[in-house]
C-alpha cells in the first residue's frame, strides 16, 4: 500500500472523526475490541483492522468491508476499550458516510415478505435505520 500525507490525513478521515466524535489515532491497536466482538467470526476484517485501515487513510478498503455492516452496535468493544475509543460510533460513522451517499446496504422494498411477516418491528425499524 502506498502511503502519502494526503491519504493519511485525508478529508475522509476527518469526516469519520467528525461524525463519530471519536479520535481514530487514539487507538493503539491492542485488538481487545476484536477479541470480544460477537460478530468477529463472520467478519472478513476484524474490527481493530478496520480502525487500522482508517489510521492508514485507506478509505476505499474500509468502506467496502462487510465488517461495518456486520457490526451489531452491541458496545462490547467500547465498554472494554482501554483507550476510550468507541468503535461502535466509528462503525456507525462509516455506515453513515455510505448511507448519506445513497448507498444502502439493504433495500427495504426487496426484503422477502415472509421475513417482514416474522420479524419483530424493533428489528425492522432498527435494521432499516442502520442499513438504508
Amino acid at each position: 500500500m502506498q502511503l502519502t500525507a494526503d491519504k493519511v490525513r485525508s478529508e475522509f478521515v476527518f469526516r469519520v472523526e467528525e461524525i463519530s466524535g471519536e479520535k481514530i489515532h487514539g487507538c493503539y491497536q491492542c485488538g481487545k475490541c476484536s477479541a470480544g466482538c460477537p460478530m468477529a467470526e463472520v467478519m472478513e476484517y476484524l474490527p481493530h483492522r478496520v480502525l487500522r485501515l482508517l489510521q492508514l487513510g485507506q478509505e476505499s478498503v474500509a468502506l467496502s468491508s462487510r465488517t461495518i455492516w456486520l457490526c451489531a452496535a452491541c458496545h462490547t468493544c467500547a465498554s472494554r476499550c482501554p483507550r476510550s475509543v468507541d468503535l461502535s460510533r466509528i462503525m456507525e460513522a462509516l455506515r453513515t458516510v455510505l448511507l448519506r451517499e445513497g448507498k444502502d446496504f439493504v433495500n427495504p422494498t426487496r426484503l422477502p415478505p415472509e421475513l417482514l411477516e416474522a420479524m419483530p418491528q424493533q428489528a425492522l425499524v432498527g435494521g432499516l435505520r442502520k442499513y438504508s
Binding site: 460478530m39 467470526e41 456486520l70 451489531a72 452496535a73 452491541c74 439493504v106 420479524m119 435494521g127 442499513y131
Partner: peptide
Amino acid sequence: TECCGAYVSISEDERSGEP
C-alpha cells in the same frame, strides 16, 4: 451477556445467526 446479533439478522447474511 453476549450479543445475539441484533438487527444484523435482516441483512440475510447466512452466517449472521452464529452468535
